[in-house]
C-alpha cells in the first residue's frame, strides 16, 4: 500500500494524476481502476479528468462523490443525460434501471441511442457509455421495471435516487419506496418545451402536489412529444441536485418546484407554503467552495406565484 501511495504521489505532478499513470498503477499493483482512483483521491491527488472541477468541487468532495452510489430510474431522455453527467462528475457507482430497448423514435433526444444501438437494452448502452468515459466508474445495469414489489431491492444501498421515468404511476411508487428507505429523490419530468424539477426528502409530499390522486399515468407529453433540448436541460438540473445532496452543499430544491419553459425561456419557482413541515424546512447548507450563495440561495428566477 505504501509503495502504491509513493507511486501515485510520484506520478501526479502538481497534484494531478494523468489517466495513463492511473492505468499504469492499476496494472503494476494489480488493483482495479476504481481502487486506484479512490486511493489517489484519498491522498489528495486529483485524477486529471477532474481538473476543471476545481473550485467548484474540492478533492475531498470528489472523493465523497466517488464513494457514492446513485440509482437512476429510466435510461431514456432524462436518464441518458443524467447517467452521462454522473459518470463525468465522478460518481463511483451508478445503478441504471430500465426494461426497454432503443427504438428509432428515441433518436431525437435520448443521448445513449444511436443507429447501432437500436434494439439493444438501454441499460447495456449505459454500461458501455460509462465504461468509455471512465472505467473507474461502476455502472450496474438492471433491465427491469421498477415496482413496489422490487423497489427495496433495487434502491437499497443508494444514497440518492433520480427519477427519470416516463410514467406518473411508477413515479409515485418510486417516491413511496424512497420515503420508506429514507433516500432523497430527485424528480424531473418533461413534455414538449416544458419541464419541472423538485427534490423530495423522506416525509415531504412534493410529488403528490405535482401529481394529485387520480391523474393519468401519462401527461401532456403524449400530445407535445419531447424535443432534444428539454431532457438535456432538466437532466442537468437533476444532476446538480444529486451533487448537492451528496455533498451537503447549496440550497436543495425542497418544498418548491422549478418549472422550466424553454419556449418563453422562463424558470419559475413555485414554493409550497404547505409543502414542507416546519422541522423539514428547506435547508440552507454551507457555502460551496466556489463562493457564497446570494441571499435566498437562488438567483435569476421568478418567484411564483405572485411577487407583489
Amino acid at each position: 500500500m505504501e509503495s502504491l501511495q509513493r507511486f501515485l504521489r510520484a506520478n501526479a505532478p502538481g497534484g494531478l494524476l494523468p489517466w495513463s499513470r492511473q492505468a499504469a498503477a492499476a496494472e503494476a499493483f494489480h488493483q482495479s481502476w476504481a481502487e486506484i482512483e479512490a486511493a489517489a483521491l484519498a491522498l489528495g491527488l486529483l485524477p486529471c479528468r477532474y481538473q476543471r472541477n476545481r473550485q467548484s468541487i474540492s478533492v475531498e468532495q470528489q472523493l465523497r462523490l466517488f464513494q457514492s452510489r446513485v440509482a437512476v430510474l429510466g435510461c431514456g431522455g432524462l436518464g441518458g443525460h443524467v447517467i452521462e453527467q454522473l459518470a463525468r462528475l465522478g460518481i463511483g457507482s451508478i445503478v441504471a434501471i430500465d426494461p426497454d430497448v432503443f427504438e428509432e423514435h428515441n433518436l431525437n433526444r435520448q443521448l445513449l441511442s444511436t443507429i447501432a444501438s437500436l434494439g439493444q437494452p438501454k441499460v447495456e448502452a449505459a454500461r458501455a457509455r460509462v465504461a468509455a468515459i471512465n472505467p473507474a466508474v461502476t455502472l450496474l445495469p438492471i433491465r427491469d421495471t421498477f415496482a413496489p414489489s422490487n423497489g427495496i431491492g433495487l434502491l437499497t444501498g443508494s444514497q440518492v435516487v433520480v427519477d427519470a421515468l416516463d410514467s406518473v404511476d411508477t413515479r409515485l411508487a418510486l417516491a413511496e419506496s424512497c420515503a420508506e428507505l429514507g433516500i432523497p429523490l430527485i424528480h424531473g419530468a418533461i413534455a414538449g418545451w416544458y419541464g419541472q424539477v423538485v427534490t423530495q426528502y423522506p416525509g415531504e409530499l412534493s410529488l403528490r402536489r405535482l401529481y394529485p390522486a387520480g391523474v393519468a399515468s401519462k401527461g401532456t407529453e403524449q400530445q407535445l412529444g419531447n424535443p432534444a433540448f428539454t431532457p438535456a436541460v432538466v437532466a442537468s438540473m437533476e444532476t446538480a441536485e444529486v451533487a448537492k445532496a451528496l455533498l451537503g452543499i447549496g440550497k436543495a430544491l425542497r418544498g418548491r418546484v422549478m418549472t422550466v419553459n424553454l419556449l418563453e425561456m422562463t424558470f419559475d419557482e413555485i414554493v409550497f407554503e404547505d409543502g414542507v413541515p416546519p422541522h423539514r424546512a428547506p435547508l440552507i447548507l454551507p457555502d460551496p467552495p466556489g463562493g457564497k450563495l446570494p441571499d435566498g440561495g437562488v438567483a435569476s428566477t421568478n418567484i411564483v406565484p405572485w411577487s407583489d
Binding site: G77, L78, L165, V168, A191, Q196, G219, P305
Partner: peptide, 12 residues
C-alpha cells in the same frame, strides 16, 4: 383568489 394551473408533465 389567485389560481395557478399547471399541465401534467409525465415524460422522461
Amino acid at each position: 383568489a389567485r389560481l395557478s394551473l399547471f399541465p401534467l408533465l409525465g415524460g422522461g
